[in-house]
Design a protein around this nucleic acid. Sequence first.
DNA 1: CCTTCCTTTGTCAGTATCTGACACGAGTCA
DNA 2: TGACTCGTGTCAGATACTGACAAAGGAAGG
Lengths: 188, 188
Amino acid sequence: MPRNSDEVRLRLQEAALELYLERGYDKTTAGDIAGRAGVTERTFFRHFADKREVFFDGEAQLRELLTGAVAAVPAGTKPLPTLRAAFHQAVPLIEHNLPVTEQRFPVIIATPALQERALAKNAALVGALTDALRARGVAEQLAALCAQVGMDTYSIAIRRWGADRADDLHVHLDRAFTDLRLAANALK
Amino acid sequence: MPRNSDEVRLRLQEAALELYLERGYDKTTAGDIAGRAGVTERTFFRHFADKREVFFDGEAQLRELLTGAVAAVPAGTKPLPTLRAAFHQAVPLIEHNLPVTEQRFPVIIATPALQERALAKNAALVGALTDALRARGVAEQLAALCAQVGMDTYSIAIRRWGADRADDLHVHLDRAFTDLRLAANALK
DNA sequence: CCTTCCTTTGTCAGTATCTGACACGAGTCA
DNA sequence: TGACTCGTGTCAGATACTGACAAAGGAAGG
């Protein structure tokens, strides 16, 4: 009876995306997803903690890439430049995930429950980046501030990139960080 | 049968806080809360959309205060200084809410579901601040960036204030915004 | 005082999320 | 061949919510 567990997990994710796109998140039950994947509702909840979690799976990969990139930046580099460099490193992965991300986007926009989970995933990433900065000797409070602010800047860059695909993500990234510097410079 | 609706609402909030503190969020049912407040589970869900929402109610007040404060800042002031001024305006309200906030804090820390909702409330506040900045003529993309970054800085200041009550919240606020300026200045 | 209307609550039935307990079947290794 | 493990199915159940309707209390007007 035990099938290939990884394959089942993948089928569940695909089925969830399809159904959320077809009927919307609220009108698809966990049983629906399981059915389309050829398993039972109970099996669904063995693979994913809840109905939201099936939608967010690439986050761990991005987290590892980013924390690794932060650690690889030359010592002595200041926190925000460090993060900017790390985000540049992540660009290929982002670009590679673009098709899936674009499919997910409208679903997330349409369902508050998924927006909340996306925010939570983002917060977890910020936490990981804070730790990565602290490992480089950045003071905790400064690390927390920079990680959060850096992540916001990155998110803005991604958003702009989505609205204006003419320019490269690298370009949007540098532009957003420049905006940040100019805006912060106006403080006193 | 109709009691004073506002009073029932308040009793539900108090009962929820008490029970979440006593047994934790997961081990208290909506029926428990309703019971302690002297009403039915159904009535609970008429006053609050879900079990999380009963925990977050002061947000609207803070939002109105902040957006109003942003609008009141002299024209021509740059976005981040505008936000800093607005946050200073909110200090009395924050200080007034401190006792309740301190009670809620450990509960939120202990329950992921409440953390998610807190993040969502925060995001809503950022959205409101973005609109308030746009109403002052700030370009949309810059407004979104500044609102998010400003809110992060504000959150950091509050966090530091909680850990170090020796200094005034005003002091922590200025300190956090200075940290932001210095950190961003390192970007090229 | 009585009637009418409106608002809030109670009751009930029902769906959906998620969990624990147990059994079954298919590979794996001795 | 037999024991073992792991993923799955089945079943029962608690809890979170929702819709529909009835009932109770207060306010307003006659």
